[in-house]
């Protein structure tokens, strides 16, 4: 494969998760509505936050558990904790 840029979902496909059936991330959509900058979208390395029409949608399954979203959210709308029961990302080569 050449060194051409890959899509995030193809990059993430190389990682391994045991996904927790209970989300470890929740977003307070009321607070989120009032945020103009939404830095989570650009700064979440796993692309967990995206815009759909005019609202933020998030998925927790592909989270790499860095905690960036929790820190950058200006309105503290993101509640982020660690997945339970050893679930979530499983790093082998990092």
């Amino acid at each position: 494969m050449s060194a051409a840029e890959q899509r995030l979902e193809d990059i993430l496909n190389n990682d391994i998760w045991d996904v927790d059936p209970n989300p470890h991330i929740t977003v307070d959509s009321e607070k989120c509505k009032n945020c103009n900058t939404k830095p989570c979208i650009r700064l979440c390395p796993a692309g967990c936050y995206t815009m759909s029409e005019k609202t933020l949608v998030f998925s927790y399954e592909g989270c790499v558990e860095c905690g960036t979203c929790r820190v950058v959210c200006p309105l503290e709308a993101i509640h982020w904790e660690f997945p339970k029961s050893g679930r979530g990302i499983y790093f082998r080569f990092s």
Partner: peptide, 10 residues
Amino acid sequence: SRIMEYSAHL
């Protein structure tokens, strides 16, 4: 090259 793993950390 082939990506083996992608990760991020604070």
